[in-house]
Design a protein around this nucleic acid. Sequence first.
RNA 1: GCGCCGAUAGCUCAGCUGGAUAGAGCACCAGGCUUCGAACCUGGGGGUCGGGGGUUCGAAUCCCUCUCGGCGCGCCA
Length: 577
Amino acid sequence: MKERLREALDGCVRELLAEAGFAVEAPPLQVEPPRQADHGDFACNAALVLTKTLRRPPREIAEQLAARLGDAGGLVARTTVAGPGFLNVWLSNECWQRGLADLVRAGDRVATSRSGGGARVQVEFVSANPTGPLTLGHGRQAVIGDCIARLLQVVGHDVTREYYFNDGGRQMRVLGESVKARYLEQLGRAAAPPADALADAELPWPESLGGLPVVFPRDGYQGEYISEMAADLREQHGDGLADEPAAGRFREVAQQRIFREIEATLVALGIRFDVYTNEKTFYEDGSIDRVLADLRAKDLVYDADGAVWLRATSLGLERDRVLVKSSGEPTYLLPDIAYHREKLRRGFERVIDVQGADHIEQFPFVRAAIGALGCDAARIELVMHQFVTLTRGGQQVKQSTRRATYVTVDELLEEVGADVFRFFMVQRKADGQLDFDVDLAKDRDWKKNPAFYVQYAHARTHGIERKAVEQGVAMPATDAFDASALVLPAEIALIKKLLEFPEVVEAAAAAREPHHVAYYLREVAGLWNPYVQDGVHHRVLSDDAALTRARLGLALGVRGVLAQGLGLLGLSAPERM
RNA sequence: GCGCCGAUAGCUCAGCUGGAUAGAGCACCAGGCUUCGAACCUGGGGGUCGGGGGUUCGAAUCCCUCUCGGCGCGCCA
């Protein structure tokens, strides 16, 4: 609808320019729904943009444009020139009614398109190392990443969801040590470190307590799940593992079990990954050595203080970074460079990294190094998100990773359910902190809880259908639907909003900003729910058969948009609530 | 100290590739409806868009600066 109007206006502008003897290209016009409804269905700024070129007052240009536009072949009902020179355009009701008919025909594939041209895109997200349960920050990232993937898929990309994790580094070592320490404590062969020392890194750390050694690592993982795993090992093996190295069974069992639990959490969230990539791969296939050698060949590597450094300053960055520690062990950066080079080599046209704000520092180094190695670093994008705070009973709940006093995704999921969890996590733009209001999320009142508000709007389209069937009224055929009886302002407004859906989805996908979809769905539901509830002025099911069919068709249009929209956010679209 | 992000209604937030009188939900106020697909509808009050400067026909939006908050600035990941 908008595009047809834009084409018509573009044509007029070109004619106007040609007639005035200007050989210049027509500037890109803005054709947008204005903020104020009484400024028309669409407002065009053409006259304001052209005023400099044509050297005529914008209002005069707008008048000429309006005259030239006419009714644009039945598209336009009327036009006005307003304000500094905006051309306000109202489209005819017939035009909107036809639009709804097309939309109903598309069903729940309204926004599905091929604009992505089948381009291969990788979205890497979550990528949490298996050291413990997923936290709310991971949860937000999981939902954002998955929604971006869904958006890209629906507009025609070939999407790979990928999870990258590290099982070679310090974190995994400490994990094994933490489990073994708890195991030994439970056997009475080691002493648990005092709670205050665990909580405060400044306090002294005892070598032993009460004649028993303290083996729990200073920076160990303090969560209850560590003790539980230790208890399970003790149950299975008694004290038979006392001499087993922490880096052996303990680490392996803990890693596998935590990873399984992370996967289970993700599945509960409706998220499945296509590829899991392990840092270890890059050691084994030699790509780490190759990266190092290639960087060295470009004189981007030097040795100092027993470590191997990346000469990042010569790539325009603030400081140099260590690639291989003096211990001989690579830092996180080196495999990350190898990983990103490998991503591009796999042929992805776009690589999207979704990362938390705490990882932001890393990205420029990876990108610079990749570029220096001759890869097209511009194909790598970063979607950064801020953290999640939790509000319960009007109070912020303190989260501390160190003390393991954070709320996990599992815990919150149990309280609010996957649908609400996802909606809340995706409804805010990524680069702002997210305040998760648990009380609101748990509120079953659909009027208050935005996730339910949208789902209920969808369920109502089915409720109406059930009612219609009860009364022996058939739903209109989706491929031959006549909407011409829909003339109420509330109906036209709803149709206009529904027809915005494809472009909302395209824009959200292009910007990698799924929150726009959540906001949009709230708006659709905000028109539909009152429309259905206002049984005083109009009812969907009435004695007028043609009107009833038209309104049932409107319900189908709403259903299609809400169903696909909810699907894009990974929420269910229930038929009843 | 440096870097990134944020600051918009009482609260939670949209709007930010510059456009007209800055929006939504919740909360609040006033009317209405009386349970039907109805845990409802209609209307209203509420703002120096953190402060200041600049760019221009026009700035919440772009630039500079200041203030406050979050995150980061490891041979952690």
